[in-house]
């Protein structure tokens, strides 16, 4: 499912839609979040239309997130279930922004970037989703604005054709991956299959049986990942990332199976 790839640890998600599906944007993102078990009260959206004229609407969203900050048992549980990682950061709100075309219709680009940055820095915000359709961007500097959004985003999904999409993922440690997937879209399902071929590989017409058992590449190692493995990998916080997080000093001790560990006197073996 596409939601496995998009609802991850990365905070700012940009969806570039080349297919003119802009009318579906809020439902689309909402659907992805619900698929990953994100509860409705953790999802916030800005009002659309003429309300975007007023800066107060934007400020209200930030204030609302700050005041109703989710302390987290429910959302944290949902998140842990999602990413399958007990050490995940505490959850916050998922923000669905209006489409970039609508934002630029009422606000200048500088304000949009400033607002995106405020959301990115906010501790109460878990994820921010922004939808941009190049066919709807009529700002004279639309190309640069879109490039700016791509720069800010940690996850860039590009819906290229009805059957093809690409995903650029930037990890906190600096690693960048660019992967292409073939996709199969129905009204309520968005299935993706990783493509192993070159960048312009057309979507193969596979039967159901072939899809389940992809052909092995010419290697003695299993180098391709399936969906679950991608999710697990994205969710994994690497030791150097953990080291850069501000946290109190902890001693993590994992006893061996043969250990005779005495909780009352942990220093028993020191003979002091």
């Amino acid at each position: 499912m596409l939601s496995n790839l998009l609802v991850t640890q990365q905070k700012v998600v940009l969806i570039i839609d080349e297919l003119n599906r802009e009318r579906l944007a809020p439902k689309f993102i909402d659907g992805l979040l619900h698929e990953q078990g994100q509860e409705a009260d953790t999802i916030k959206a800005l009002p659309t239309g003429a309300n975007l004229k007023h800066v107060s609407s934007f400020n209200a969203l930030i204030t609302e997130c700050a005041t109703n900050s989710v302390s987290g048992t429910t959302t944290q549980a949902a998140d842990e279930q999602t990413v399958g990682c007990p050490g995940a950061k505490p959850a916050g709100y998922n923000i669905i922004l209006p489409t970039l075309a609508d934002l630029l219709c009422y606000q200048p680009p500088a304000f949009v970037f400033g607002f995106l940055n405020r959301l990115r820095r906010s501790e109460e915000v878990r994820r921010v989703f922004l939808w941009a359709s190049p066919k709807h961007l009529q700002h004279p500097d639309a190309t640069y604005i879109l490039a700016g959004c791509e720069y800010i985003a940690e996850l860039v999904l590009r819906l290229e054709t009805d059957t093809l999409l690409s995903l650029i993922s930037r990890k906190p440690g600096g690693g960048v991956t660019n992967k292409r997937y073939s996709c199969k879209v129905t009204k309520n399902e968005f299935q993706v299959t990783p493509l192993d071929g070159g960048p312009a590989a057309p979507a193969p017409q596979l039967s159901a049986e072939e899809e389940q058992t992809p052909e092995p590449v010419n290697s003695t190692f299993k180098i391709e990942l399936d969906e679950d493995e991608v999710v697990a990998r994205n969710a994994l916080t690497l030791p150097y990332e953990r080291a850069s997080e501000p946290s109190e000093g902890n001693i993590i001790y994992t006893p061996d199976a043969d250990d005779d560990f005495d909780e009352e006197d942990p220093d028993e073996d020191l003979c002091i």
Partner: peptide
């Protein structure tokens, strides 16, 4: 004419 809007595609 859009008949129905699904989560990921329109009919």
């Amino acid at each position: 004419r859009v008949l129905e809007e699904g989560k990921f595609a329109c009919e």
